[in-house]
Structures are given as C-alpha cells and as structure tokens.
Design a protein around this nucleic acid. Structure first.
Length: 282
DNA sequence: CTCCAGGTGAGTC
DNA sequence: GACTCACATGGA
C-alpha cells in the first residue's frame, strides 16, 4: 500500500500516541509544535507529511522519516493483537525528540494519565518557558533555567511529588554530572544505567527516553498498559518485572520498542478503553 | 465518591 | 532481585 511512498506517516497516530506532549491540532487539520525552540507546522496528504512551516532537515530527522517502516512491519509479531495494532496505528513513527525535553516530561509522567502529563508540561512552559513568536505555548525550559526555578513553582504546575525529582535532575544536569548528548555514544545498557542515576528516573522512564530520544528501538517501556498486554500474551501467566522484560524482548522482536508503542496506542484508543465494570449499572 | 493513571525509591527479606 | 508502601494530582 505504500511501495512508492517509503516515508509514509500518520501524524495523528504519531503525535497522539503518548510519546510526545507538545503538539496542538489546528482547525485546518494541521499540527503546530516546537522542536526545542524551532517552530513547525505540518499537515498530511495521502499519508505524506507536508511541511507548512519549519526546516525540512530538522523535521525529517524529528519525524524519523528514514525509519524503514516496511522492514519494521515485516518483523512485527504475527499474533492477532500485534497485527491488529499494526493495522490500527499504521504510519505511527517513533520520534527523535530533544533529549532533555523527553527526559523531563517522562520524569513527570509517573502515575499520571497522558492528558495530565500534557497539562503539567504546558503549565511548566507557560510559567517558565521562553516565548516563541507564533507558537501557542512557550518552549520547554532548558535544564539550566529549570534549575533556577523552585519547588513551589513546580508544585503550582501540578507536579506533586514529581516536582522535587524534576528540579534535582535539572540541577544535576546543570552541574554537569551527566551529559545527555555525550551519552548517545554509550551502549544501551550503560545509557540506561546512567539515566537511572537521576532522581525520578527508574527503569520504565529510562526506557521511554531510550526509545523516544536515543533511537534505541529495541527498548521496551513496561507501564500498566503494556504490563496487562504482556500478561494477556502469556495467556494470563503473571511474572516478575525481570521475567516480563525478558519475555517482551523475545516476543516483540528486534523492533520491540516500535511494537510496544503500537500496542500501547491501540490499547488506549481502540474501543475507547471500554472499562467493563462488573458492578451493576447506575 | 471511588478508582486509576506511560512509576519511583526506601525498607525489608 | 522481588515484594510492600507511600507518594500528589486530577479526570472519569
């Protein structure tokens, strides 16, 4: 269906799949957002991206138009659930996000719904971000400027107990304890371990950052949704975190992170997450 | 009102 | 390593 269009993409699936929280849909169907402080507006025709505003090179890289989706799809597991996710999320691409922004937003993600993560992020940007002409919201603050903020401000952005972690991490990065850019050269195992030394970064958040900001397409974040899906794939057989991580790597294949994202998006959107209550109706 | 959300970290075995 | 708990907030 896309032999002549290897760079096909679904902007909606890509931007609403819970990997990024910084894009706004416009009435004309296009999307406006920031990559760092670079303003961009994109739309889609025949599964092809149309750049209305922004640097083509930056956007090409950000939207990972070079990812071999056909090859990735060929490596998808053949079970009905994975194949259904593939059909429903066709064209979803894993982005190459700016490191700090990705790390920061996922530090705030713990025990929060996607909509909440977005509102916290928007609050932070409105409160201490740098305005960008033409952008609906200011750019996400750098770790240097966030480090100059305080816990009270972040609490007012709705972060709750996550405020202290985000602030501490921003200050550690400002002190140069960890260089997010230099880490790109390290192995996935070393990179994950380095990220996990930061406050608020456990194995799940680390895997999100590996997948969404470091091009580690085999990294599999296991949250409550993916956990449930993995258990279902094992026919209800529970397992320890280590066992499930190992199972996911083996079962989901070389592009396990991609498969994971399709399964996640499908689970959250398909059937509108029909929460079939066992209790009697009201 | 109750339940749940893209978890983490500390304590304990 | 695995298990248990507390941790803030807001939408359904």
């Amino acid at each position: 269906m896309s032999e002549k269009n290897p760079a096909f993409i679904s902007l909606a699936a890509t931007l609403k799949s819970g990997q990024v929280f910084h894009w706004d849909p416009l009435p004309d169907g296009s999307w406006i957002g920031l990559i760092g402080d670079h303003l961009a507006r994109v739309s889609e025709i025949n599964q092809q991206i149309v750049i209305e505003q922004g640097d083509p090179e930056i956007l090409h890289r950000y939207f990972s138009l070079d990812h071999p989706l056909e090859q990735i799809y060929a490596a998808f597991p053949k079970d009905p659930l994975s194949q259904e996710a593939l059909t429903l999320c066709h064209g979803l691409r894993i982005l190459r996000q700016p490191r700090w922004e990705c790390l920061a937003t996922f530090i705030t993600s713990s025990m929060k719904q996607v909509a909440h993560i977005r509102s916290m992020s928007v609050a932070i940007r409105n409160r201490i971000g740098s305005p960008v002409p033409g952008s609906p919201h200011p750019a996400y603050p750098s770790f240097e400027s966030l480090a100059l903020s305080d816990e009270k401000t972040l609490l007012e952005c709705g972060l709750g107990y996550r405020a202290a972690n985000l602030l501490k991490t921003a200050r550690l990065l400002t002190e140069g304890t960890i260089d997010l850019e230099a880490l790109q050269k390290r192995s996935t195992t070393e990179l994950r371990a380095a990220l996990m030394t930061l406050p608020g970064v456990g194995v799940k958040v680390a895997n999100c950052v590996l997948l969404f900001a470091y091009e580690r397409l085999d990294a599999v974040p296991i949250d409550v949704w993916i956990h449930r899906i993995l258990i279902a794939m094992r026919n209800g057989r529970e397992g320890t975190p280590t066992q499930l991580a190992k199972y996911a790597r083996r079962r989901l294949g070389p592009y396990a992170g991609y498969v994971q994202q399709y399964l996640f998006h499908r689970a959250r959107t398909d059937k509108k997450n029909a929460r079939a209550s066992v209790k009697s109706p009201a």
